[in-house]
């Protein structure tokens, strides 16, 4: 298990390194290919040659790509100083550079948005995991019943409807028509947990619905397959009561594949989060990414990409480790 652990962590770090290399490469290549000058993007078209050279020197834009990449990595790990003679700006770790648009440091900019996206993602994930798995199990146990058919039809709708549709529909019904929920702003958890919860409820449900539908279908299929296994018959032949047969023996294997899918989905959650943040006007990472793409703000795009990649890699790492814990066949080879 320790060897497995070390191998997985090593792989994860390696993956992240490759991701920084590729994204940084793109970041470096895009201005070259489009013929735009990053220095110009920083200080605008009106600047004179001296100012442009100064910014090139300070940002290290004239260095060869590997040197720039090296400095970028160092900035990530240890922070870096941008210097042009006596003009020194310190950027603490993890340094992601400066926004073209606002000239703000990227890291604090994104850190401000992170809690919004994190709250959205975490709440939605918990909601869909519990909701999807529970409905899937119930459907499997009542296969062919009216309940099963209703739930599975709903799940089909959930899988096929896009977020902006379900999101707007949910807003229309719960906010404007029934008036049960406020249409408002994100409230930080520490400010007021209750408001945080109420404000996020609808985005959660919208985002979770998309995933929960998949989980319900998947769980149902897994459970039905597991219930037909020989070892379930053995569990019954031992004289175990039905609740142990289902609740322990069947769930144990029926839910194991869900863990893998959950990890993958956690990673790709950001895509759904961007749309959800747009629909509900939440200013999170997704919103920030959208603005950056519109404004061609490469350092911010780079930052968001790295955060998203880190999120995916870490989620996968956690899943691999959890999987090693729950499936002895993986752990012991």
């Amino acid at each position: 298990m320790v060897a497995y652990l070390i191998r997985r962590i090593f792989n994860a770090v390696l993956t992240l390194l490759v991701v920084t290399l590729v994204t940084f490469g793109i970041f470096f290549m895009v201005p070259k290919l489009t013929g735009s000058d990053p220095a110009l993007l920083y200080i605008g078209k009106t600047a004179d040659k001296v100012a442009l050279d100064g910014i090139r020197e300070k940002m290290g834009l004239a260095d060869p790509i590997m040197v720039q990449y090296g400095k970028f990595l160092k900035g990530l790990v240890a922070g870096r100083d941008y210097a042009n003679g006596p003009d020194v700006t310190h950027c603490p770790a993890p340094c992601l550079g400066y926004s073209f648009k606002t000239e703000q440091e990227v890291t604090p900019l994104l850190m401000d948005d992170l809690p919004v996206t994190f709250s959205l993602a975490l709440g939605a994930a918990i909601l869909w995991l519990i909701g999807g798995v529970a409905t899937g199990v119930i459907s499997a146990l009542r296969k062919g019943s009216l309940l099963d058919r209703v739930v599975m039809t709903g799940a089909l709708a959930g899988v096929s409807l896009p977020i902006y549709f379900t999101g707007l529909l949910a807003s229309a019904v719960f906010v404007y028509w029934l008036g049960w929920l406020p249409q408002g702003q994100y409230v930080p958890f520490l400010e007021s947990p209750a408001d945080w919860f109420v404000q996020l409820l609808l985005p959660w449900i919208t985002l979770a619905f998309l995933f929960a539908a998949t989980y319900a279908r998947l769980t149902r299929a897994n459970m039905l397959e597991t219930l037909g296994e020989d070892y379930i018959r053995t569990a019954r032949a031992k004289g175990l009561p039905e609740r142990t047969v289902i609740g322990k023996h069947a769930l144990r294997s029926g839910l194991t594949p869900i863990v893998t899918i959950f990890g993958l989905d956690l990673g790709s959650l950001l895509g759904g989060a961007i749309l959800t943040e747009a629909v509900f006007n939440l200013r999170g990472l997704g919103y920030q990414a959208l603005q950056a793409i519109k404004g061609n703000d490469l350092p911010v795009i780079l930052g968001v990409t790295l955060i998203a990649a880190t999120f995916i890699v870490v989620a996968n790492l956690v899943v691999d480790l959890v999987y090693g814990l729950i499936d002895p066949r993986v752990r012991l080879g």
Partner: peptide
């Protein structure tokens, strides 16, 4: 079941719980 009467199955690999 499993008390007064019990059973051995054909394929012990699939008849045992993998986890």
């Amino acid at each position: 079941r499993g008390g007064k009467m019990s059973m051995i199955f054909q394929d012990p690999l699939s008849a045992m719980h993998p986890y």
